[in-house]
Design a protein around this nucleic acid. Structure first.
Lengths: 241, 241
DNA sequence: AGGCTAATGTCAGTCGCTGACATTAGACAA
DNA sequence: TTGTCTAATGTCAGCGACTGACATTAGCCT
């Protein structure tokens, strides 16, 4: 049955897919039910306050069955992140080769967020995804895992960038460095957004654009310029594709 | 007794410290013994393969007592990191005010590593610290926690930088952005170092210097310049204080 | 209809961690 | 020195995440 693979790469018909079969449909339903129940409970009552037994009971299934569908409690919490991240990698690979690395990264995230709603809709409404994101950011153990996952993803992104430019990731520091800086910005904006009051996707989007524009100036030798128009709360127009 | 505080800020005589007293000395000895035993076991046999009972048994104490000295198994693993990080913050605050932010950060880490041996020696030999660092990097759950801790530290660093420059951290993105980029570089070099074969402090040091020098070029629009002399394995001279 | 086997349930056990309560052993005064 | 007084420790029971072993149920296929 291979639950691990199913958790890592959600819903997709494997090679032998002539007909779902009653059995397969049932399995899929159980998985979806578990996932949805878990997200609902996590975002409502809190991750730590939710027991695996709670999730299983909400679906009418034994605890042991839960663990046959998901390798652990954490994995359910990141199921949607998995989808979005896969979606981002697709966006990145779709960027034209002539774009400079940092520019390609920037456009890839923005593109990705533009189509996140559809990407996620098969599992749950966008609102649940956003709520779960906040829950992750505010739950220490989830935040920790999230950061490690991001770090692992950075390796993949660096590899893609290196290939775009025809470089060897292990010989040239630059791929890993841009990615580190770039995802550092995303981390900062993600955190600010999740602790702020504007919890819309557009809010996150414009905040990210503004911060990306400031990376250069921030790394510049000195900060003596007053740098007026970068208040955190300002709406600010965003320029992109 | 307050074990949590003791774990966060190791060995220091609290205000009422006219004489250690036999009791206090014994407590300190137990704490040190637990810490050393834990680090030894973690680095030798692996974090997950080490049971809290193992640690307690190695010291001749009950499991319950272990948890009275440390809030959890993880905290022991990061006890030395705590010291080094505190040490770094001191180095950073000691940087002259005229240095540009990024420059101050750079010098602070290098200074910090120069005196790490003495800072850590009170607990364990430097070699154990380095081995524990590798263990952290190679143990998923520890790596995750390490990243979250780093992120929390970033907030402090950003606050210090903002104060140096007389800025408001919440109004100006730049403090958080430099810090994010900077610690991104440290993360990358730390990871490369821990998976490489040169496990000396100097190895980490020179690698870091080389990578820090590349952040600017990496963020630059295009990477078309061949950029020959940045092979990962090269020794390379380092220019600093 | 009946056999095959995947899916599920049940049970016991490990490990990290906590609260409650009993026991021991420094500290301090008489 | 002795006798409290209490901090430090040990013991025990229990929770929650997880796992292996084994029994049971229920789709599937002939």
């Amino acid at each position: 049955m291979n639950t691990a693979t199913a958790a890592a790469a959600p819903q997709q018909a494997p090679p032998p897919a002539p007909r779902p079969g009653l059995r397969e449909r049932k399995k899929q339903r159980t998985r979806d039910a578990l996932l949805r129940a878990a997200l609902e409970l996590f975002t409502a009552r809190g991750y730590e306050q939710t027991t695996v037994d709670d999730i299983a009971r909400a679906v009418g299934v034994s605890q042991r069955t839960f663990f046959r569908y998901f390798p652990g409690k954490e994995e359910v919490a990141f199921a949607m992140q998995d989808m979005v991240e896969a979606h981002f990698m697709t966006s990145l690979r779709a960027r034209p080769a002539h774009e400079p690395p940092l520019e390609a990264l920037r456009r890839a995230v923005l593109d990705c967020w533009d189509s996140v709603r559809e990407a996620v809709a098969s599992i749950a409404p966008l609102e649940l995804y956003l709520r779960m994101f906040r829950t992750i950011e505010s739950t220490p153990v989830l935040l920790a895992t999230h950061l490690r996952r991001s770090m692992e993803k950075e390796e993949h992104i660096a590899a893609v960038l290196a290939e775009r430019e025809g470089l060897d990731v292990d010989a040239d520091p630059r791929p890993r460095l841009v990615v580190a800086a770039f995802s550092g910005v995303l981390r900062v904006t993600g955190r600010l957004w999740s602790t702020g009051e504007d919890l819309t996707l557009d809010g996150l989007r414009s905040l990210t654009v503004r911060y990306l524009d400031q990376v250069g100036p921030a790394l510049a030798g000195t900060w003596r310029t007053p740098n007026d128009p970068n208040r955190t709360d300002a709406p600010a127009e965003h320029t992109d594709a």
